[in-house]
Amino acid sequence: MFNYTIRRLLLAVPTLLLISFLIFLLLDLAPSDPTANLPLTIPPEVREKIRISLGLGEAFHIRFLLWCKQFFYNETLNILEQWWGWDFGGDRLRVLSWQTRSPVVDTIVQRIPQTLWVVGMSYVVGILIAVPIGIVSAYKQYSWFDQVGTFVSMVGYSVPTFFTGVLVIVIFSVWLGWFPSIYDTTLVVNDWSSFVQQVKQMIMPVSVLALYNAAQISRFMRASMLDNLNQDYVRTARAKGIRERSVILVHVLRNSLIPVVTVIALGVPQVFGGAIITEQVFKVNGLGQLLIIAIQAGDVPTVQTLTFIFAFLIVFFNLIADVLYGILDPRIRYD
């Protein structure tokens, strides 16, 4: 397993380099202009100067290599400096956003907390809801609970979050006035009242996203449970005289969780990717919003860096999922 993991990690390096190159190429080929969103009152020659000051005057391969150096080398050194207080000295240019002219990585670090709080929490809540629903739905297949669960899942999966998001805002913010419609990213939780405020502002985005996540995962859970419920070893367990609860929770659930856990692991990069639409609807301004704004503004360094980080997370969590599979399922061994 260890060798396998190391080998996969080593293989990931060329993969990620290739991905970063492809992203860069795609972004370069895409018709986008960082000065496109400026007011038309700014004349073309000024725009040209802005473009040159952004480094767009250089050839493609120079810009790509420069990004690689800035991201893989300069930013790494910078992180080391910040974490361990080392000082490598020298004047290193970091990856700078074209919109904000500030280091992209700093902005990303700034955005991670709200994304993790809201999107991550919704993922956790989604899983916590989905697993029991999946279990009960499968155990009582075709019961009213299962039918309702199927319906809710279908709704949660197929109704887009920009609809459910606006709906809950209209109901709970506009009509009832219970929760704020706009997320305050500067809120610092340091006492009970600010905690209550944080909970209040998280409830709507978290529920909307959790519904969506739960819909997906509960279907997986249900299908996996159904697969296992009909297995012979379940009958064996019952014949042994095991309590029904233990039959379900120990025998069926543990086996059913194997594929579900890997699906959950594969979904984690999406958490970091943020929920573009939901973040936009609730003004959570996390990584998803950062990405979409950067795309709209033609901010290539930000888009490149973010998509690369997402690519890295996807590759990494794929590995995690595979390793988890190996750990959870004794039948699978990687050698």
């Binding site: 297995q231 012979d232 070893y233 009958r235 064996t236 367990a237 025998h251 543990r254 086996n255 194997i258 959870l328 399922d329 004794p330 039948r331």
Partner: peptide, 9 residues
């Protein structure tokens, strides 16, 4: 089925 009747985990 001696395979299926034993819990693989």
């Amino acid at each position: 089925d001696p395979q299926g009747s034993l819990n693989p985990r």
